[in-house]
Each structure stands twice: as structure tokens, then as C-alpha cells.
Write a protein that binds this DNA or RNA. Structure first.
Lengths: 356, 356
DNA sequence: ACACAGTGCTCACACGTGTCACTGACACGT
DNA sequence: ACGTGTCAGTGACACGTGTGAGCACTGTGT
């Protein structure tokens, strides 16, 4: 156990990190000149020989400007804060996330992931504000209140963008209408003549913000179908929607499939292609024929779903492009007064294959 | 088109972001006192009434300290830089990445994703060094040279950690031994009596750093098998390994399956469970029976692979835990002189199911 | 000889913090 | 009255950078 004084970190490689002052000394000019040369400031003229000397000195010392000092002086940063949640999210989201980062980087922003779980809205907003980001893109796992948005804006954020279910005033709210997914899936099933429809609700924690709206969308579809059907005066049997809790493992699926007959369902919207594949397999193993006895619909339009027999019907989701969102961020940052409007995104449509 | 002067950003909400000086003014104390109170500095005693006044003033103004200024003064940050690549990486990696971020956040680090593609090693290192991160965790998509590592360390990075194939001096190299995956898979196939073995090599750009070592591992397994077999003197027929380029779509898979018979293969290691599922389906559709005519092995041990018939054999990968890595980062940051050792991670073992 | 403009560069301040050294004020013991 | 000690707090500097104002010098036109 070393009894190190622990006060000064003491880089063992005695050489400290060089600053622009060091460059200036070596080049025999003032620090201001160094700054002008290295930033190619056009307003000030520096002779070509001097420029060369400065550049060579910087090169020799391995000078690297200090981003924090720079943005402190400038009064603003180019940091986009991306609060990241602890949710086991599918490939569609992963892809979107990745694209978004990529495109922001291309626009010369620095993306900062900031895990903030178990924080209250105002605590989270405070923590974010410390970083003085120029924009915040939240996925709604932390519910922003109006005042935390104001705090963020006061601390320099020129754009606050929320993707989620609810919309917060003062932000660009992009409504990822999860309900619509459940709705179109269920409407499709009803249209195909199904009447008792199960809706898988994953038990995994953190998925509630997706699964709950989808369930509600399914129920909505059931209600509207009942209404129009009554108007048509035809066979006005009601449509029933039954929530089905399910964990993402074979045991849970087998258990559910085991008591399928007593549930008396003739269709299921399985939240997801992954859950759908899991459940469909379990149903088949339990002797339930798909789609004859029970129709199955997933969501996300994964390639793998096409490989099963029967091919999995699914809901294709037109996810907002990472690129598009990155451009929105950029526009909002540059023109402060882009009106914070709400847009509804996430259009979705059923892709019928063989399982329904 | 507005002829805005564009010089000062001019927050429309005239109120600027409050600093500790504002708090001091409002509380009627000096700025130093504010700093002492808000940081709970124990070395200096401040009376309880004053503490309250300061806290209330800070509360009222909605004061939030400026992280950049703070770490500028402190001389170091708690920022961990995570260069993110443009690679379409599977669920295993996504999970790992997510965990890592999570755990680092728990240890009070700030994770900064920094996309750096198409940059040369020294350019990338320079860009990273500007942020003065306290640690860098690279996944090897940018090949760090020894001198870029030195640059990073000189600019304050107390730990540079690379996960990848090669190991760079001066860093904690965690060797994700991709080759081993191909090796165990192929060894398993040989042991099961297969002799002409295909190895899928994804055509997706950016996957080369994974696929190439796996292919080489397969070839290595073939050579050692040939050697020991020759020693045993038994049927010393050589083992052949054939690379199979494949895109992740049905068309490409069908095309490959179409000319399967002329390839004359009796087994295939498909890089991945996802590619394996894709290819297996295509083979079955082309009338090739699995595993009788051709054995198929994937990798990653995805749940979905268990749902196919026949169940997909796979290579289970003991991925390094995000938590474990986060703790390594923390240790390396706190004790500067943790020797930069190389560890070999990523142990892998075959899980035989039905497709081989 | 003087004004004036242009060139090439430097001085000094500001950004928002943390912290070391120091100062008044007061109490206590002699 | 004087030294000593504690308490509560302040003044001032440093961190590394960008930039407006200004300065010395040189040519050029009157």
C-alpha cells in the first residue's frame, strides 16, 4: 500500500501537456498570434513565414487545443446530449441510435451519452445542464417537465427534442406513436375475421413505455371496429382484447402456449417480431396451428421473421431516420427561432405474410 | 432571409445563465464562500446561517455549475471517451456496450461517444485528445499506433484500453480473440466427421475486423486437425476450408444455396447466428437437408436460434462483462501505475444442438 | 514635413471555477 | 496591554483559450 500524498496526480512522464503559450515561446511570437494562425482567422493578417514557424512549433510539441477551455471562452459548445436509458431495446432502435450519432458527428457535433436512471426529472435536468449542451435529444425515459426544459434552455441549450409518447411544451416533440402500431396490427386481425385477440405485453422492466401504448392502440382498434360493425348491422359480435404477460425466454412462452386453448384466442399481436417468433414456435410445439387456429402478428419487420414457416406477418415501422433527426437538431441550433412544433412520426403499416 | 448581425447569439429570454458570482451577490457573500458551501469543502468552516443563505440564493437563481470551467480549473475531467464505429454490430455487442456505459455512469464517469470514421490513427488521436478524457476505451476499429497512445497519455488520459485483435504497447489490451470462435466451431465440425467446411464471410463493410480472424481461426483448426490426424496415421484426408462471401439478405443467401451442390461442402460455419439462420433457411428451401447433408454452426447463442428446426448449433461467447471492464477503467484511472497488461478474453465454447 | 493608410504583430481582458494565503474580529490567559 | 488561538470569511490567482483595441513600423501621396 503506497502512502502516496495523492494531492497532485504527478504525471510520471514529467512532460506536461503543452499549451498554446508553449507553442508561442518556441515559435518566438505571442500567444495571440498562435491562436490566429492555428484557427486560420481571416480578420488578422499574419505573414507566411510566421505562419510556418507557428505551425512547425505546434507540430513539434504535439500541441492539441483544450476543448473545454475553448468552449468556455466561446460561451457555447457543440455538444449534443443523449440521455441513455437502461432499456433492452430492439435492433430497430439500435440502428436508429447509431445513425443519429453518426450523422450528428458528420455535422461536427460531439455526442455525449449520459446515463440517467432513477433520477427525478429536475435532478436529471440539472445534471444535464452542467454540461451546457447545445441540444438535448431525449427518448422519453425521463419525463421532462416544463420547468426542467426551461432550465435546460436557460443554460444554453438551443434545442430540446423529445421522442416519446407525451409532448412537452417548449420542446420539439416527435411523437413516436406506439399506439398506432398496436392499432394497425389489431385492425388487420379484425379485418381478417379474428375476434378474440391476445396482445403480448413483455414483462421486461423498462419496456412499459413501448408496450403499454401498443396495448392501448389494440384496444382502440377493437372499439372502433365494434362501432362501425354495429353501424353495418352485421354480425355485431364484440371484439375482445386480452393482455398476455410474457418474458423473453422459452419457459415463459411454453407456459403461455400450454394454457392457450383455455384462453380461447384466435389471434395474437406479439408486441415484436422477436416475441412473435418465440411465441409462434411455442404454439406450434403445443399443437396449435398457425395461422389456421391462431393468427400471429409481430412488429419491426425483421429479416429473421421471413425465415420461419409460416412466414411471420408483421408491422413495418417507418422509423424516423437518424439523418433526418440530426438535421432537425442542426436547424434548431442554427436558427434559434424554429418554432418548437410537434410532429407525429412513426407511420406504420401491416406486412401480411403467412402467419395471419 | 433575416439580416441578423449573427455576432452575439442573443438569448431571446434576456436572462443569461447565472454564475456563482450571481449567487454570491444575491447571498451577500464572496464568490469563494459560495464555492465552499456548494462543494461542502470540509477544510473551511462556514456558519450555518450563511450556508443557508447561499443555498437559498443558488436555489432561487437556478444556479448550475459549469462543468467545463470546473474541469478546466481542476486540470482533469471524468470523461471516458468511447470511439464509436460505423459497424452493424450484433445484439451481443449492443448489450455489452450498453452495460459498459451504464456501469461507467454508476462510477460517476461521463461517457462520450465520439464517432471517428475515415480518420487516420493520428488524426483520430488528436481529435480525442482535444477532449482531455481521463480514459479511452477503443474497440479497435481505429488502429491505434504507439505514438497516438503516447499523445493521449500526455494529454491527460490515465488509461487507454483497447479491445481488439492486435495489442498496442502502453495500453491495456483486452484481446477479443475472434479467431478462437472460428477455431472451436471448425474443430467441432471436424470432430463430427466433416471434412469440407465452408466459412461465411459477411460482405457488409466494417465487419472485416470480426470476420477475417474467424476465418483464420477456422483455417488454423483445419491445419492442426490435419497434423494430429496424420500423427494418428488414420484416414489422413485433408480438411478443406472454403470462404463464402454472403450479404445479409435473402437474395444473396438463395444464390449461395443455389450453387451449394457444386461447392461440395458438408458443413458450414456461418459467422453468426443471424447469418446461420438466413443460410440454413435458404439451404432447406434448396432441398439440402440439415444436418444430414450439411451441418450448420452459428455463433452468439441467440435465443432465436433455438426456435428453428433443427435447432441451431452455435458458439457461445463469454463476452467480457461491461461491469468488469468499467471496473478496470476505474482502477486504471485511480492507480496510475496499474501495469498495462494484456489479457485474453472472450472464451468461447460450442453449444451443440441439432444442426450439426 | 505631415497626414494617412496598410501591414504584422502584441497586450490585456474575459469566460467560470477552485483554493491558498491572508485578514478582522473576538475571546482567553497572563 | 499583549501574545495566542479560533472562527468566519475574503482577495486574488490560475486553469487555457479567443479576440478587440492598440502599437510600431513602412510606404505613399500632398
Amino acid at each position: 500500500m503506497s502512502h502516496s500524498t495523492e494531492q497532485t496526480p504527478e504525471r510520471p512522464t514529467g512532460q506536461a501537456v503543452p499549451t498554446s503559450a508553449d507553442v508561442a515561446r518556441l515559435a518566438g511570437v505571442s500567444r495571440a498570434t498562435v491562436s490566429y494562425v492555428l484557427n486560420n482567422t481571416s480578420a488578422v493578417r499574419i505573414s507566411e513565414p510566421t505562419r510556418r514557424r507557428v505551425r512547425e512549433a505546434a507540430e513539434e510539441l504535439g500541441y492539441v487545443p483544450h476543448a473545454a477551455a475553448r468552449s468556455l471562452r466561446a460561451g457555447h459548445s457543440r455538444m449534443v446530449l443523449l440521455p441513455s436509458a437502461h432499456i433492452p431495446v430492439g435492433p430497430l432502435y439500435s440502428q436508429f441510435f447509431h445513425d443519429l450519432q453518426w450523422e450528428l458527428r458528420r455535422l461536427d457535433y460531439t455526442v455525449v451519452q449520459y446515463g440517467s436512471v432513477g433520477l427525478k426529472p429536475d435532478e436529471a435536468a440539472r445534471a444535464w445542464a452542467e454540461l451546457r449542451p447545445v441540444a438535448v435529444v431525449s427518448l422519453g425515459e425521463v419525463e421532462l417537465t416544463e420547468q426542467s426544459v426551461e432550465l435546460l434552455k436557460r443554460s444554453g441549450a438551443r434545442a430540446v427534442i423529445t421522442l416519446g409518447t407525451q409532448q412537452v411544451p417548449g420542446t420539439h416533440s416527435l411523437a413516436l406513436d406506439q399506439g398506432r402500431i398496436g392499432e394497425v396490427a389489431t385492425a388487420h386481425l379484425i379485418e381478417s375475421g379474428r375476434r378474440r385477440i391476445g396482445v403480448v405485453v413483455p414483462e421486461e422492466p423498462g419496456l412499459g413505455m413501448f408496450s403499454q401504448p401498443r396495448l392501448e392502440g389494440a384496444q382502440r382498434a377493437a372499439r372502433t371496429a365494434a362501432a362501425t360493425e354495429a353501424g353495418a348491422g352485421a354480425d355485431a359480435v364484440g371484439v375482445t382484447v386480452v393482455p398476455l404477460p410474457l418474458r423473453y425466454d422459452e419457459e415463459s412462452a411454453d407456459e403461455l402456449a400450454g394454457r392457450w386453448r383455455e384462453l380461447g384466442l384466435d389471434a395474437v399481436f406479439a408486441y415484436n417480431d422477436e416475441y412473435a417468433m418465440l411465441l409462434m414456435r411455442a404454439l406450434q410445439d403445443a399443437g396449435i396451428s398457425v395461422p389456421e387456429e391462431t393468427a400471429v402478428v409481430g412488429a419491426d419487420d425483421l429479416l429473421l421473421g421471413r425465415l420461419l414457416r409460416p412466414r411471420l406477418s408483421t408491422v413495418h415501422i417507418d422509423m424516423v431516420l437518424g439523418r433526418e433527426l440530426a438535421e432537425l437538431v442542426d436547424r434548431a441550433v442554427r436558427d434559434t427561432d424554429v418554432p418548437p412544433r410537434s410532429r407525429r412520426l412513426l407511420d406504420s403499416r401491416v406486412v401480411r405474410r403467412e402467419s395471419s
